[in-house]
Simulated scan of single mutants.
Amino acid sequence: MIPTTRELRRCNDCGDPVLWTVTRAGRHLLVNARPDDRGNQACYRISPRTWQSRSLDAADALPLAAWEHPFMPHIATCKGRATPAPAVLPPNVVRLDTKRRRR
């Protein structure tokens, strides 16, 4: 199922059309506007203008149902996001993301 143009919004970073979904945990997730076979989010419409998504990568994830379609999370393809840090940093730079505590 393809979302209608009324259900789509524009990404603030790159301007591409995106679809807001609600995960089973109640969080919001941006996915690309079109289904993608490489996507890891199973999305389906639960009411007019409301879409639900669930991860296909979880350990206890069920296979894709007949009414679901795979979508790619927009964060994976967004062209407006800052480029990630290089894998090899200069010797005078400390990588802080590995030093931070997880919540």
Rank of each mutant, 00 (worst) to 15 (best):
W67N: 15
R9M: 12
R95G: 02
A42R: 14
R9K: 15
H28Y: 06
T98R: 08
P35V: 00
R10P: 00
R38D: 13
D37T: 10
A65L: 15
A59S: 13
R38A: 11
P73Q: 11
G15L: 06
R9I: 12
A33Q: 05
V22N: 04
R6I: 08
L89Q: 09
W67H: 15
L30V: 01
A87H: 04
V18P: 00
T77V: 13
A25H: 06
F71K: 09
L62S: 15
F71H: 03
G39F: 02
K99L: 01
Q41E: 14
T5M: 14
N32F: 04
Q52L: 13
Y44T: 06
L89I: 05
N32H: 10
V88K: 05
F71E: 06
S55L: 05
T23V: 08
R102N: 00
L89V: 08
T83E: 12
P70T: 06
N40V: 13
V88F: 01
T83V: 09
L64K: 02
M72G: 00
N32C: 11
R49G: 00
A58F: 03
R95F: 03
D37S: 12
C43H: 09
A25L: 09
K99E: 04
W67Q: 14
E68P: 02
L64T: 00
W67T: 12
A59C: 07
W20R: 03
L29S: 01
R95D: 11
A85D: 10
N92H: 10
Q52I: 02
D57R: 14
C78D: 04
R45E: 15
A66P: 01
N12T: 09
C78H: 10
R100H: 05
I2T: 09
I75H: 05
H69I: 04
G15N: 12
M72P: 03
V22S: 01
R54M: 11
L19I: 05
T83L: 10
I46N: 08
A66R: 07
A58S: 14
R100T: 00
S55V: 03
G15Y: 13
L30C: 10
T83S: 11
P86E: 03
T77M: 10
C43I: 15
A42M: 14
L62M: 13
V31C: 13
S47A: 15
R100K: 01
R38K: 14
G15W: 10
L64N: 13
R81D: 02
I75D: 07
A82C: 00
W67G: 06
D57G: 08
G26D: 11
G26Y: 06
Q41L: 12
T83R: 13
L8I: 09
C11G: 09
R95Y: 01
G15M: 09
P84H: 05
R101D: 01
T5G: 07
P86F: 04
S53A: 15
W67I: 12
W20G: 00
M72V: 12
V93P: 04
I75V: 09
V18D: 05
A85Y: 08
L96F: 10
W20T: 02
